[in-house]
Amino acid sequence: MMQSEFEVAGRTREVTVTRTGDGFAVAVDGHTWNVDAARIDGQTLSLLVDNVWRKSYDIIATPDPATKQLTVHVGTTPVTVARNGRRRGRKESGASGAGPQRVFAPMPGKVVRILVKAGEAVRARQPLVVVEAMKMENELRAGRDGTIADIHAQEGASVDAGALLIIIQ
């Protein structure tokens, strides 16, 4: 796990990166995203970020040796990013994270399927629940390894954005 503070377009963001088998769980100011990162070359990344959809971002990140800043091009939009020093770093210890992970409905929709049972052990990125929104089915996945502590969702139920669906311990 790596926890850092970045200044993004002038705003301080707390970012925690945790390896999760085939990808990363990245928490930005406490909000966790499942990220599939493929490195293309020294400065090019392809990110697939699970939110409502599995969104694709074409990234070119280049350092400016003079200012020690990074210019991160998200598509055609350049964003200036400065790292405020590594606050805490430790060796990868498999996929782990502090505290329970809460899985929320990212937008209003209908719970189509619940794919896990309470007490079940899950792996990071394992699909947990399928929410249908705007005629698209969206799998919500585990951010890290753990055990299903509680299931708040019911199949067929409508949920609001931000509704708590599952807790992983």
Partner: peptide
């Protein structure tokens, strides 16, 4: 071009992931 909140979030993710890689 002014980065949207989404783009800023992604930039933070990208910078952190690249630092790990």
């Amino acid at each position: 071009v002014e980065p949207t909140p989404e783009v800023e979030e992604i930039a933070a993710i990208a910078a952190a992931v690249q630092a790990v890689l």
